[in-house]
Each structure stands twice: as C-alpha cells, then as structure tokens.
C-alpha cells in the first residue's frame, strides 16, 4: 500500500508531502522527505531521455509511450518502491509504496490510476482562490482526499 505521496513544484520545492503512519521508522516525516528527495534525480533522468526519444527509443521498448505523463517505477529499495508522474506543467507527483507490508503486490495500472487521480485532485486544489501558485498546499480538503486515495486505491 501507499505510504507516502508528494507533490513537487517546478523548481523542485515540496508543495505537499503526505503519508500515513505505518512506517516502522521513528522519524516518519524525515524519512518521507528523504525518500521523495532521492526520487527527484531519477525523475530528471527520465525526463531528459524523453526529450531525445528518437535516438534511444529502440532501447526503451519497455515504455510504450514516451510522451506519457506517467513515468512508471523510478526505482526500488529494500523496503520501498517509488513511482513518478510529471505533468505538462512540470509538477512532479511521487508515490511511494511499501514492499514489506502485506498486500504489497501492486500492479502498475493501479499506481497509474492513483497518480492520475492525484493529478485531478491537484488541479482542483490550485483552483482554490486561497492558494497562491508556488506555495505549499495547506488545504485540509486536499489533504483528506489524498489520504483516502492512499488508503483505498493502492
């Protein structure tokens, strides 16, 4: 199941990092930040290969559509798997799942759906007149919706 979800802005500043606390580590907030932070380099790498897609498209046959917003599994550690999604507006969405907890066999399609729904929630959240572009998302409604997304979907 998903343990952490993050929204990262254009300039790599965190707009929202949320998680549900079944992480065994004592320092939950820090470990989440660290997990998400390590994903950013992998995201940049994927994006740059997308840009010169013509040259190495043959080597990347695993990814059918190089222009897809969903970038798939970025990398996995012993305990976590990290998935990425970058919108057209260069907002980065990161989803971290735990590979140790029961029911950890998550299909790629499920993660894709979850991230698409997160994108929809984000698009709604920035239309909130009390939100300034580039600021952290403080909306409680958004927080609640993301938490339920993490619990239900993945």
């Amino acid at each position: 199941m998903a343990v952490c979800v993050a929204v990262i802005g254009k300039d790599n500043s965190p707009l929202y990092i949320g998680g549900i606390g079944n992480d065994p580590n004592a320092d939950n907030e820090l470990s989440r930040q660290w997990l998400v932070h390590t994903a950013l380099d992998a995201l940049e790498e994927r994006l740059s290969t997308t840009n010169n897609s013509n040259t190495n498209s043959s080597t990347n046959t695993a990814r059918a559509d190089l222009r897809d917003l969903y970038l798939g599994l970025l990398y996995s550690t012993d305990t976590h798997k990290i998935y990425g999604y970058v919108t057209n507006t260069r907002i980065k969405l990161v989803l971290v799942t735990s590979s140790t907890s029961p029911g950890s066999n998550i299909r790629d399609a499920e993660v894709r759906t979850a991230l698409r729904r997160l994108h929809a929630l984000y698009a709604d959240a920035i239309c909130n007149p009390f939100h300034l572009p580039g600021d952290q998302i403080t909306s409680l409604k958004f927080d609640k919706q993301v938490k339920s997304l993490m619990l239900n979907n993945v």
Binding site: L69, N88, P133
Partner: peptide, 15 residues
C-alpha cells in the same frame, strides 16, 4: 495559469 493545469491533464507531454 490555473486553467492550464486542468486542460493539459489528459494530454500527452508536449514535444
């Protein structure tokens, strides 16, 4: 600025 996030949601990445 705000409407763009919505409109490009279903679009593949721009070349």
């Amino acid at each position: 600025y705000k409407i763009m996030e919505r409109l490009t949601r279903e679009w593949p990445r721009f070349k």
